[in-house]
């Protein structure tokens, strides 16, 4: 990890708040998943639509399940989906972006740019739907759709940066002594895109969580299990009847998680002075 990034995250109020929020939610999700906390989002009781109480902080839903437990379970889902999509998209984006940037103007670059153009032209919801058809739905189709679509943004940025850096004199001097291209890319170019990758990782995380919620809400994402999107889907009926537990819990947790990520992204962008560059 990058020293400047860590320094910025610990050194600023925004960075500390963001990290704190993420750590808190992460630990909560972990504790619930490993059974350390008595929060079971699947256990049904005959207390339907109970209002908030000491036992059920956000009340219960129409099946009598504890809403807080489901919201914490939603955090676990969000982390799981977010981390998988982010890792995949960043790795793919860095690798293909570096190749395209190094070969800027060549046929490989043109081919990769074409692929990126194709993916960019397919709205994420339709890609997710198509993949859900092909793979029979579920979490893996959703994660695959997001990874397959989100890597493009990172790849474009890495491509531009690598193309910009490859005319730099430190790269020329590596070329002049005859260093093989893959070595130059890995040793001299990719390390100089770490700041882009870190920022993109947080932004991809944000996009993944937002998309997961909407896909699950629409019924092309998570079908069973717990998700803030599913809770929000339930809540659309609830709120018309005056039950706000589901909505408050899901949107509150969602907001805190996104806020944490965005604060981290913002701090990183400031630290790397990327704020000025239009995305």
């Amino acid at each position: 990890m990058n020293a400047r990034a860590l320094q910025a995250l610990w050194g600023t109020a925004a960075g500390r708040t963001g990290l704190g929020l993420l750590l808190l939610l992460g630990m909560l999700a972990l504790a619930a998943a490993s059974g350390w906390l008595p929060l079971d989002g699947f256990r049904t009781t005959n207390l339907q639509w109970a209002s908030a109480s000491a036992e059920h902080w956000f009340g219960t839903n129409r099946l009598g399940q504890d809403i807080l437990a489901r919201a914490v379970g939603g955090a676990a889902t969000a982390f799981r989906v977010g981390i998988l999509v982010t890792l995949g998209a960043i790795a793919l984006g860095a690798a293909l972006g570096a190749v395209a940037g190094w070969r800027q103007g060549g046929w490989l670059d043109e081919a990769l740019q074409y692929v990126m153009g194709v993916i960019d032209s397919i709205p994420i919801y339709l890609l997710a739907a198509a993949l859900a058809f092909a793979l029979g739905g579920g979490e893996s189709a959703m994660i695959l759709a997001m990874t397959g679509s989100f890597w493009v943004a990172t790849a474009r940025l890495v491509r531009a940066e690598v193309a910009r850096l490859r005319a730099r004199e430190f790269v020329l001097s590596a070329q002049a002594i005859g260093l093989p291209a893959p070595l130059i890319v890995v040793r001299h170019l990719l390390p100089n895109t770490v700041h882009i990758l870190l920022v993109q990782a947080t932004l991809t995380f944000v996009a993944a969580i937002k998309t997961e919620v909407i896909l699950s809400f629409l019924g092309i994402g998570l079908a069973d299990g717990v998700s803030w999107g599913l809770m929000l889907a339930e809540s659309t009926q609830d709120v018309l009847a005056g039950h706000f537990g589901n909505f408050l819990a899901a949107s509150g947790f969602l907001f805190l998680m996104l806020l944490g990520l965005n604060l981290v992204a913002d701090t990183l962008q400031d630290a790397f002075d990327l704020q000025g560059a239009p995305a």
Binding site: R168, E169, F170, L172, I177, G178
Partner: peptide, 23 residues
Amino acid sequence: GADARRRIQLVFQDPAASLSPRR
């Protein structure tokens, strides 16, 4: 050829850009 690449060395104009920044 490695021999030529070793025996002729070039120093560039811009000292800010001529050294790999993260090494």
